[in-house]
Design a protein around this nucleic acid. Structure first.
Lengths: 496, 496
DNA sequence: TGCTTTTCACCTAGGTGGCAATAT
DNA sequence: ATATTGCCACCTAGGTGAAAAGCA
């Protein structure tokens, strides 16, 4: 790896020394062969919680700092948020996380990814992120001591931080809870005049991202609210996500870790090193249920972003078959499917993929084909891993797909696709995947529209049972095809 | 350009001859220097309408074939849909449009893009697309005659076509009408077992895309509807968008036109030809308000996709400063801004960009900063050209941006970004851009969050006036920053 | 003999850190 | 003496048609 000559001159040796010590400790934590993924996670949680606002042993779920507040929010009372990829965050945090900010805007790496629990499944929520100053100090990196030192004061009190509303907002609690909520696409800028909606920060300052869960007032139509309720907001932050803003990396350990973990920086990786290829795979496959290969290279250099591949078991509700990776590459994760198929090699970072839905192959299933609609943008782009309701809905397209469909998911780029046989309806139509499976009475042998989306697949639509009576829609003259739409809904109602 | 040897052997000469004749005609239509953009458009409309279902001279707005139907839809009665990029479609249609279908799914080129009028601005609509058979024939391309011949019959009556719901759905009529509604990301497949939501077609058949405007029943909460109303659907189709499905191009004129017009096929363009570079620019800048350079190369080969650069004036409401290109490259268009700045060279095809909003630079504007929310995913990815409500909202960030912001828009990739100072609210909060401008009392000198999105920016959120009282949100101890959210909404209500 | 599938080079589009030039 | 900016090579990710191979 090419290192900044300046940084090299001052701190290489001390940094490397430090780094190695930490690695040894981490290996002890993370690389015990007999420890289950979950137990490893818990171990990490406990140690991590030493730094978080609220210590909850054996759980990484973080209660908001303002819980029990005088004006208790409605609809978010029991909300819990857990940081995903906390191992990677922690590794950066131990070194002293730096985030580059540029005029044009720079993504965060790692990015903030959370899982939310305790929401009312039927309520609508906004989820948002902002970045607030950790203190009022300006910092300066001292190379010879490899430390950040206070270099002055800054008054942040008059700065209104920009709030980044997660693009899937608003969305039902159920849908939010089924997803990994990712803020991958947030960009940081030092341009005070930024007009691109990026989060504006000052360089050489310390900041901390926050996540807000905001209840949508149910009295208002989702599309007609004129203002938000005065309550119903719960805020979460994580100590390990603190970072110092820079315009160029100061600590070369940070540089090294970024290069190692961020797939977009792969070009700077040292090809001679042990990791490299396999680590890249790990980042590409942030979550893989059962391939032992994934963990082969979990040596001294791989744990941070990838050892976290240990799934996080959802604490509320049924354990999800699609679990979150501990690493937080900006990539979006393509769950292999809840059927245990391995992910194909797709780094679906800024992929735009059609929503997931599986539709009855009408040539095979001549009778009414079902389509399910999830109005809550289930395949939302930035929601990783956890398949939307859609994912279970699907169904009959598995017939005959064994040969052709494997390894094909995520080849689609479209961030837009929402495919229905009928009409979109509520995401709450099928509260459980079991229902849709039963409804469809189909067997599952293949992935069902498991497309991880990092892109904002703005689909708030979704599959619905439905069908076109083609015979009706095609008069003998095809010149003026008319869609007698009154045929649809009555049929659809059967499915909904 | 390398041509299929087979195709070449049979039909090169006749095809080229045909092609040249058409080009001459088209040049007559489109390259009269004294004719305004709008008039050119109208000329084309008239000739195009010769082929459309409903002939409406001087207007390319197409009434749906089913208007006046027994069961008149509610909420879509007056809906009108006009095809964008019809010049390009028409050029393909004259040759005999072919669309490649593959197992993995192939995009359409041109893609279907429409503009909708006559909606109730405050109502919610879904907009969807499907592809239906034009007839029940199977076709075969006869090289020596360069014609498609009937080769057999097919029974389509039992096939349920997949309906592709536009990812921005549901969305208010106002927002829909402000956008070019693009179906760029639709993919066609010949895989009957497709589980990726692509539109399934049979090769060597003729099809026609349709666009459906579907009224959302206002009695239901947008997020809680269980089924769609039995009425309120209006369907539109365009003769010039008919195409024959193929697995490999048959007519080399089609191949040539695709290569010339589709930026992704640029690698196959003949570098020695006149067009090439500048045509590429034209496709990259589908709409440019005033740069004469854009039209310099409108020679024999450029009209189809780019001559359409002539803006289409919105028939309903105030003329939009951001108009649609006639061409339909799969790219998404980055309007230079409604302020007349030229687009930077961005082919924002699968770009994911943060929503557009411009926020008061708080360092300059210390008083309450405004943030506007458009609940209707205004910067939606697939909605090209026409800026969402957001675009006007912005405001004060123009201070001091003159130097740094030019040519920067669209550098952002995030399909997700929704940036607020406060909370998202309804897209109907600011029914006109004038309002927001007045509200903000700011001058416009620069682009305001003009980000074209092709990606599904699933943002149905949006900017709202708002502010963080940082002094309140930052207790002296920054360890546990708490967001006393009760502070927000009351403030926001002032703005909403 | 057709038609389909696979693979490929060549594009678009954009996210990385390095590095030299330029501010401050 | 630092900090910032702009440009770059090098990545990821995916959309093209060509051409060869495969299939019926």
């Amino acid at each position: 790896m090419a290192l900044s000559s300046r940084a090299h001159a001052f701190s290489v040796e001390s940094l490397v020394g430090k780094s190695l010590k930490r690695k040894l400790q981490e290996n002890q934590e993370e690389d015990q062969p007999g420890v289950t993924e979950t137990r490893k996670k818990e171990t990490l949680e406990i140690s991590r919680n030493d730094e978080t606002e609220e210590k909850r042993p054996k759980s990484r779920i973080l209660c908001p700092p303002d819980s029990g507040h005088d004006n208790p929010p409605k609809g978010t009372d029991s909300a819990q948020v857990e940081l995903q990829g906390s191992e990677l965050w922690r590794r950066f945090h131990e070194i002293g996380t730096e985030m580059i900010i540029t005029k044009a805007g720079r993504r965060m790496f790692p990015s903030v990814r959370v899982k939310v629990k305790g929401l009312d499944p039927s309520k609508q929520y906004y989820i948002a992120m902002d970045v607030i100053p950790v203190d009022s100090k300006r910092y300066r990196y001292v190379y010879h001591s490899s430390q950040w030192m206070v270099a002055g004061n800054t008054d942040h009190s008059c700065i209104n931080p920009r709030l980044y509303i997660h693009p899937d907002s608003p969305c039902s609690g159920e849908t939010w809870m089924r997803q990994i909520i990712s803020f991958d696409r947030v960009k940081l800028t030092n341009n005070e005049m930024d007009d691109k909606g990026h989060i504006i920060l000052q360089s050489m300052h310390k900041y901390k991202p926050r996540v807000h869960v905001i209840a949508q007032d149910s009295r208002f139509d989702l599309c007609q609210i004129q203002s938000l309720p005065a309550d119903g907001v719960k805020t979460f932050s994580f100590k390990e996500t603190e970072f110092t803003t820079v315009t160029a990396y100061q600590n070369q350990q940070i540089t090294k870790l970024k290069i190692d973990r961020n797939p977009f920086a792969k070009g700077f990786r040292d090809p001679g090193r042990n990791r490299g290829v396999l680590d890249g795979l790990l980042e590409t496959y942030p979550w893989r249920p059962s391939l032992p290969l994934d963990f082969k290279t979990f040596g001294a250099e791989t744990h941070g972003g990838s050892s976290g591949s240990s799934p996080i078991t959802s604490s509320g509700g049924a354990p999800s078959p699609l679990l979150s990776p501990s690493c937080s590459p900006p990539a979006f994760h393509v769950p292999s499917s809840n059927l245990g198929l391995p992910c194909s090699e797709n780094y679906l970072h800024s992929l735009s993929v059609p929503l997931c839905y599986k539709i009855c192959p009408t040539n095979i299933l001549r009778q009414r084909s079902f389509l399910f609609s999830n109005h809550d943008k289930p395949g939302s782009p930035s929601s990783h891993l956890l398949p939307p309701l859609m994912f279970d809905v699907p169904a009959l397209s598995s017939f005959g797909t064994s040969k052709s469909n494997k390894g094909q998911f995520a080849q689609t780029p479209s961030p837009s696709g929402s495919m229905l046989y009928g009409f979109p309806a509520s995401g709450n139509v099928f509260p459980s995947s079991a229902l849709s499976r039963e409804t469809l009475n189909c067997s599952f042998h293949h992935p069902y529209g498991i497309y991880g989306y990092n892109l904002s697949v703005p689909s708030h639509l979704l599959a619905t049972a439905g069908h076109f009576k083609m015979a009706d829609t095609f008069p003998s003259s095809f010149k003026d095809v008319r869609c007698n739409t009154s045929q649809w809904p009555s049929t659809l109602n059967h499915c909904l």
